[in-house]
Design a protein around this nucleic acid. Structure first.
Lengths: 235, 235
DNA sequence: GTCAACCCGATTTTCGAAAATATCCTGTTT
DNA sequence: AAACAGGATATTTTCGAAAATCGGGTTGAC
């Protein structure tokens, strides 16, 4: 079952529509709403305590991000998973992230370096292996995203960064799905550290290589651990 | 003023929401709804003859595609234009399209070749220079998009193709804006023909080079013709 | 038994009223 | 004049009722 209570407007999410999108996105990425699950409006209405309009707007937005599928007149469902889709998402993510790195590294200034170091430090303070409790993993996920984002943040192309975010999130869902279904989070802090080092050294080629390998390694583990289980999610 | 009459459901657009998104997208790409223009719901309601819900859903979707901007509690507007944005969109489009070409060319089979030839032929039947009437240009735009899509269609990554479409559309809006404001459509059929030839020969490097140059050439012309006028659109 | 037509409950989609919020105007104070 | 408050108007956002559509089940004709 997805996350808790009634939705409210906040400072940064000033409409229920935006709040619903944020919460639904989190619930889908965490697989609290599992792949393929039908999203009935009445159920969501009760669950989140908001009306049809904000919910539909949120779902349409998530459909545009590829996290939800909409079949007209037949409703919404969480985007299904498959080995093909995982491969597509992984390869595209590698392409986009390396493109972004190529632009970011030469453009990175002191502030960029500082935020890379900072986000790496925060990442290093959580051991995803030793602390497999739910809340901790959510926090690790946040910091992991922050770290990868910090690396590409100096890239001056908003559009490329938008694509980066979409690809990252779709890949991240598979990683969380694997962890949910028993895959052990691996200790990849060393990989991140090396990646950071070569990035700060502005070694573009090495950074792209390490980044690709880092993502591919995760990909292979996920595929090995849950590749055959993916077809379960036909609900 | 944007395109005509009351919206209706059709076979392929089975909800008013989808129909509204399609029509709004067309009106934004054609610049019938100019960049920066405020999109008041009451006005759109009258214009398109549908209620608030489908309109808001369509606008949220277009916001996710980068064609509309949403400021919470202050409504929607057509995405603004700027020289920086044009450059971002162009460069990202080149990156994505060459990525897609690299995957498509080696994967292209007979059917792909056939559809490339077919779409080139259709493109060649319209001269965008001689027939600058509105309807004809819309048809040329469609065929131009079809041609470029046909080239990358053999790429097996749905996600990359989704990104391709978003980048293409955002670039296309600038081209149409330039034409609307007096830029003469140039005769680039030769460029397309060469691109097709090298693509069919599976010369990946040459195809990527030609494609990049083709896009950059359009970019330079647009920037030259309307670069300084872009700031007009602050409405 | 098969197929089509029909009906019924479940669900999505659409609508406009009502609530929430922003924006503009006007008058008042300093 | 500038700054501010109060209130009227414009606009967005949200809601649940109503309409449209889907899916499953039943009936009846062949």
């Amino acid at each position: 079952m997805p996350s808790g209570s009634r939705l409210q407007k906040t400072e940064s999410l000033r409409t229920l529509s935006a709040a619903a999108a944020t919460r639904l996105r989190a619930d889908i990425l965490s697989c609290a709403l599992p792949p393929g699950e039908r999203l009935r409006l009445d159920a969501l209405k009760t669950q989140y305590g908001v009306g049809y309009s904000p919910l539909r707007e949120a779902l349409v937005q998530l459909a545009a991000e590829g996290l939800v599928e909409l079949e007209e007149q037949r409703g919404f469902r969480v985007a299904p998973v498959s080995a093909d889709d995982l491969t597509d998402v992984t390869r595209t993510r590698i392409s986009i992230e390396t493109l972004a790195l190529r632009e970011a590294l030469p453009a990175g200034d002191d502030a960029w370096e500082a935020s890379v170091v900072q986000s790496f430090h925060l990442l290093s303070r959580i051991d995803p292996v030793e602390a497999p409790r739910r809340g901790v993993n959510v926090e690790w996920s946040k910091r992991h995203r922050e770290f990868h984002y910090a690396l590409v943040a100096a890239c001056k192309s908003p559009l490329l960064k938008r694509f980066w975010a979409q690809a990252y999130d779709r890949a991240e869902r598979y990683r969380r799905l694997a962890v949910t279904y028993g895959s052990k989070p691996r200790d990849n802090l060393k990989e991140h550290e090396k990646l950071m080092k070569v990035a700060l050294d502005r070694d573009v080629e090495k950074a792209c290589t390490l980044c690709s390998e880092h993502i591919m390694k995760t990909h292979r583990i996920i595929l090995y651990d849950i590749g055959k289980k993916l077809s379960i999610f036909r609900s």
